[in-house]
Lab assay of single mutants.
Amino acid sequence: EYSEEELKTHISKGTLGKFTVPMLKEACRAYGLKSGLKKQELLEALTKHFQD
């Protein structure tokens, strides 16, 4: 599980793409985000969540 700060850091540095799909799905579930099946959809959901 990833902390909010850790995820925000990866988003701001542009390194969230280094996460694997299972890692991204886990992060989306942890924050109650609707997650797609594609890596890009997962990245967009997390990025949008933490930028709002």
Rank of each mutant, 00 (worst) to 15 (best):
E1V: 09
E1S: 05
Y2F: 14
Y2I: 15
Y2L: 11
S3K: 09
S3M: 11
S3V: 03
S3E: 04
S3T: 10
E4L: 08
E6M: 13
E6H: 12
L7T: 09
K8F: 09
K8V: 12
T9W: 10
I11K: 01
I11E: 00
S12G: 11
S12V: 13
S12R: 13
S12W: 08
S12M: 14
S12T: 13
S12D: 13
K13F: 07
K13R: 12
K13A: 12
K13Q: 14
T15E: 06
T15S: 06
L16F: 02
L16M: 07
G17W: 14
G17H: 08
G17L: 09
K18Q: 12
K18M: 14
K18W: 08
F19I: 04
F19P: 10
F19L: 14
T20G: 09
T20Q: 05
V21R: 08
V21M: 09
P22L: 06
P22Y: 08
P22Q: 15
P22T: 11
M23G: 05
M23Q: 12
L24Y: 04
L24T: 00
L24W: 00
K25P: 00
K25R: 13
K25T: 13
K25E: 13
K25M: 09
E26P: 00
C28Q: 02
C28P: 01
C28E: 00
C28H: 04
R29T: 06
A30I: 15
A30D: 06
A30R: 15
A30H: 03
A30N: 04
A30G: 07
A30F: 07
A30K: 15
Y31A: 09
G32I: 01
G32S: 07
L33Y: 01
L33N: 00
K34M: 08
K34T: 11
S35Y: 06
S35A: 15
L37I: 15
K38M: 08
K38Q: 12
Q40S: 15
E41L: 06
E41Y: 06
L43G: 05
L43F: 03
L43R: 05
L43C: 07
E44V: 06
E44D: 14
E44C: 09
E44K: 05
A45G: 07
L46P: 04
L46K: 01
L46A: 01
L46G: 03
L46F: 01
T47P: 03
K48G: 12
K48M: 13
H49D: 00
H49K: 05
H49L: 02
F50T: 01
F50D: 02
F50C: 05
Q51P: 03
Q51M: 08
D52C: 05
D52T: 09
